[in-house]
Design a protein around this nucleic acid. Structure first.
Lengths: 319, 319
DNA sequence: TTGTAGGCGTTATCAA
DNA sequence: TTGATAACGCCTACAA
């Protein structure tokens, strides 16, 4: 392995001079700098990250934690984060699973962005207390080292209910999400509040944000009543897709027998027939904002929490 | 920051004893080991990865390089790799972009798995020559430090053409992929060979593996001829989806006016109506095998190349 | 069984 | 403008 020592030897200077030259310090002549850089190139020198990190105590890497890699959901978000970090000279790595959470206290990364209900808030707080910085996308934690960039679930749910109201819906089935999930809780709270305000009857059907749970929910709903059309607000698109699957197999027509609204605006929804009506928000922007915030935190600045706003996307599933 | 020094002080022993104890070396008493570990826990000690890496010269981390995070395509593959690595005690990080490619020579990772046409073969070889180990999933490189786990594109394409033949197809449109891509080249070669064998007429429509390019290809094809049905073999599902989009907007019926086969068996295809016929393979297994191979290489063992076999998945898009 | 001390490759503080 | 040299936190012969 070739290190600065080898370069120093070949250049006939000391290692410190080499270090200065390589780091563009103004403490060396333009001339020696160039000469040293040339030799470094010639020797195929590549700095050793471990050594540099040990000294510098920062890696310029931000980790993004996801529950799994399955969702096509994440693509835009990650692209947004990556683009956002790039501006400030940070690299992004994507991780999943509890062992990699150690990257944070081990100082392998300078900070983290969390969208992973598997990551315990308890641990997040523990890390924050150790002085590490994080941006959370899926929970509420009050801590000076933590910044929250959350979806405007309240706004989104209200939009969905408004649509239902505007169609003079008599009864609404809400396919809910995980009991302990922040987003699903907020969607539920806002939906109930709004439905009560208009005096619309509703029923909760438990789901867990997965497609199969949407399928099961659909079965319950369709066998519950003979009335048609049925109005459903699924708390995410995946479960809405489960409803499509069920309807397909049981001769129920989406858009006629069922009137369905989802949440998330997954790409898949736009390919369904009829198109899935849903609540949308910019995942790309979400990522960009998260990136900007984590960089601020890492640099020791304050970062204000922010909300990502939503809009309604019409689709024939809710004519 | 609390380091082994602090533990040593508190335990009244030397730092080496602490190091031994923490690393389960047989050089310390069971008793002192436990005592030291207890103190470490109490002090919330977490080893500094940079320091450890500097000495150990390995991180137990494998990087996976992707072109982008967009494809829902990657989910299963990454889960497979992660699961495979876990068995051997390695962590996985997912990266994208040329700057993060430096992780390899910088020794931030012990090895890499590459599925990213953006990653220049030239650089891969350069890294391999420096002694780094890699598994490539999307190209052919002969090098002792590199192992190839490739799709059986030849088999898959042949399966697709066989289906066409079995339906007495007269002419086939092939929507091809990127000119310089390994997979698309192989699919093209095998398809042409097979079509020529049966004496079936065919025409190449250039695509680049993206959905819009499939859409454009469809436009060309549909305006090219008035004959129906048209038979299309799209070299990946994304482009096939583009064909669906076009057909949708122009009153052409998939499965009737067009007979379509894709490649990759994306989840999305199974939700399309009618279901997309396609060539399938286990992405999960692909990932598991890649993981196993990179670990072998990193440990200095030989790793044989392998092929991931394909099968035909029927769908109403190709009745 | 434990302690001492040198080294991993860089950076950064002093002197020169 | 450059060069010695001491950290950075951990591992590991070698010595005791």
């Amino acid at each position: 392995m070739v290190g600065i020592k080898d370069i120093a030897k070949k250049a006939g200077v000391s290692i410190s001079t080499v270090s200065y030259a390589l780091n563009d310090s103004p403490k060396v002549t333009e001339e020696t700098r160039e000469r040293i850089k040339a030799i470094a190139r010639e020797l195929n020198y590549i700095p050793n990250m471990a050594a540099r990190t040990l000294k510098r105590r920062q890696t310029n890497i931000i980790a993004v934690y996801l529950t799994d890699y399955a969702g096509s959901f994440y693509g835009e978000l990650l692209d947004g984060i990556k683009k956002g970090l790039q501006v400030y000279g940070y690299e992004m790595i994507v991780c999943s699973g509890s062992k990699s959470q150690l990257f944070i206290p081990e100082k392998m990364v300078d900070g983290a962005i969390v969208l992973d209900w598997t990551f315990k808030s308890e641990d997040i707080i523990k890390f924050a207390n150790r002085g590490h910085h994080m941006v959370v996308l899926d929970r509420i934690i009050e801590h000076p080292n933590i910044c929250k960039i959350l979806l405007d679930n309240k706004g989104g749910s209200t939009l969905a209910i408004e649509q239902l109201v505007s169609r003079h819906t008599k009864k609404v089935y809400l396919i809910t999400g995980p009991k302990n999930g922040h987003d699903s809780q907020e969607r539920l709270k806002a939906s109930e509040k709004e439905l009560n305000r208009y005096g619309i009857d509703y029923e909760l059907i438990p789901g867990d944000f997965t497609e199969p749970s949407g399928y099961d929910a659909a079965r319950k709903i369709f066998s519950d009543t003979k009335d048609r059309p049925i109005s459903i607000f699924a708390f995410n698109d995946e479960m809405a897709i489960g409803v499509y699957s069920y309807a397909d197999k049981h001769a129920e027509v989406i858009g006629a027998d069922v009137r369905l609204i989802g949440f998330d605006n997954m790409q898949l929804g736009s390919f369904l027939k009829p198109r899935l009506a849903t609540i949308s928000y910019s995942k790309y922007r979400w990522g960009m904002v998260a990136a900007e915030k984590i960089v601020r935190l890492v640099k020791g600045k304050k970062a204000e929490d922010e909300l990502i706003y939503t809009s309604f996307v019409a689709g024939k599933s809710f004519p």
